[in-house]
């Protein structure tokens, strides 16, 4: 019976991951900033047959809350096997260009606060000598584009951080998974026109669970984004800078 902490549990992708783990009989802690929404998710999982679900309401962007949250989760779960960090926000790029304050706020949500969280979680797991840390980054972090580079910078920074962390913990029995989804149809992307490359949160969740089980290092979801990003990364900067992306 796995013991799982999901941070940002109201995310559409995280919810689908939780549903899969419920079917596997896992114990779950759901952390997030909005208590009412978290209870909607928890009730759903309970109706689906979850044996043990706990809600933890936390201001995730404030590192001072992290220690307590992790402790409560470990107490409830009686241990901790896996953590999924799913929260994130898609910034208004123009607003960020106009206001450094806004930019810093987005960097905090998508990068700095996650790093703070991972620092604690990593040390705990390192001490215990086992565990899986799965974190949702994004293909947007693979290359900076004018339309979305604040988000890209945060996710790119996060991916590099995870790479280093994985390297550090590889010999300590702790596994670090970087998840890089492409276009996913969720509330975050409600205003986008959906084309062929779009997939459901359910599809991405299946990919995440599989990657966690198989101890993969970096997964693109769906898989074809690895190829797409390979091409995008290979365009010489000289040309790339003139493209409208």
């Amino acid at each position: 019976m796995k013991k799982i902490l999901i941070i940002g549990a109201t995310s559409a992708i995280a919810r689908e991951v939780a549903k899969i783990y419920v079917l596997q009989g896992a114990r779950l802690c759901l952390a997030g900033r909005d208590e009412k929404k978290l209870h909607i998710v928890a009730d759903d999982l309970t109706a689906r047959g979850a044996q043990a679900v706990q809600v933890l309401t936390v201001e995730l962007t404030d590192p001072a809350t992290h220690g307590d949250m992790i402790k409560q989760a470990e107490d409830f779960l009686q241990g901790l096997d896996c953590v999924l960090i799913a929260y994130g926000s898609l910034p208004d790029q123009h607003a960020c260009e106009a206001d450094a304050g806004q930019t810093l706020k987005e960097l905090n949500t998508n990068f700095i606060s996650v790093v703070a969280l991972l620092t604690r979680l990593a040390n705990d797991m390192e001490q215990r000598g086992h565990g899986v840390l799965a974190v949702i980054s994004s293909v947007a972090g693979d290359r900076g584009r004018q339309s979305n580079y604040i988000y890209g910078a945060a996710k790119g920074g996060l991916s590099i951080f995870l790479q280093g962390l994985r390297n550090r913990l590889a010999s300590k029995g702790v596994h670090v998974l970087t998840v890089k989804p492409g276009f996913v149809d969720t509330p975050m992307t409600v205003d986008f026109n959906k084309g062929l490359l779009w997939v459901s949160a359910e599809t991405v969740a299946q990919g995440i669970v599989k990657a966690m089980d198989k101890k993969r290092d970096v997964v693109y979801l769906p898989w074809f984004w690895r190829g797409i990003m390979l091409i995008i990364k290979s365009i010489p900067e000289r040309m790339f800078k003139k493209m409208k992306l």
Binding site: A12, I40, V41, D43, D44, T46, A47, R48, P187
Partner: peptide
């Protein structure tokens, strides 16, 4: 499509709220 949560399933009485 996003209002897709179950709320309560009473397995004894067979009453489902969703």
């Amino acid at each position: 499509s996003r209002l897709n949560h179950f709320i309560h399933f009473d397995r004894e009485q067979g009453i489902l709220r969703c």
